[in-house]
Write a protein that binds this DNA or RNA. Sequence first.
DNA 1: GCCAACGTTGGC
DNA 2: GCCAACGTTGGC
Length: 138
Amino acid sequence: MARAQVSTISYFLAKTDPGTYSMEDLRREGKTVWEGVRNALARRALAAMRASDLVFIYHSMGQSAVVGLAKVTKPGNPDPEFQFLAPVEPPVTLKEIKESGLFDEWSLVRQSRLSTMPAPDSFAKWLIKKRPALKAAL
DNA sequence: GCCAACGTTGGC
DNA sequence: GCCAACGTTGGC
């Protein structure tokens, strides 16, 4: 039976070394083209991004935490454009994500070197529950 | 086409 | 700063 197509958004997670380009830089600039990712699997995730998809910005290199939320304004071809939406305050650390035990199958946990990847809907829900302030940005 | 050596990333 | 994971390069 046909059913009305509801447009759904996908979630992603993008890592960045804050020493090179941080969430604060994105916040200041408002928007940025997310480029410089070379790994094939990571580029596939970038290419899959569509306008209005949501991206969790993650600081690698010491901080290891989700620090912000962004929206895809231009799709990946393969470099998408991100618009800053909101900080995650306080950041949600990889440690917390691991300790939740909910995301053991996720690439963030399984494949530490992967820099860009899809994020499960369950992670978005879990994060919003942990940081209710994010609701306003969604 | 295999695989050893090397380089890079990111967690700790 | 170290090391594990893993992608890439180059000799054969």
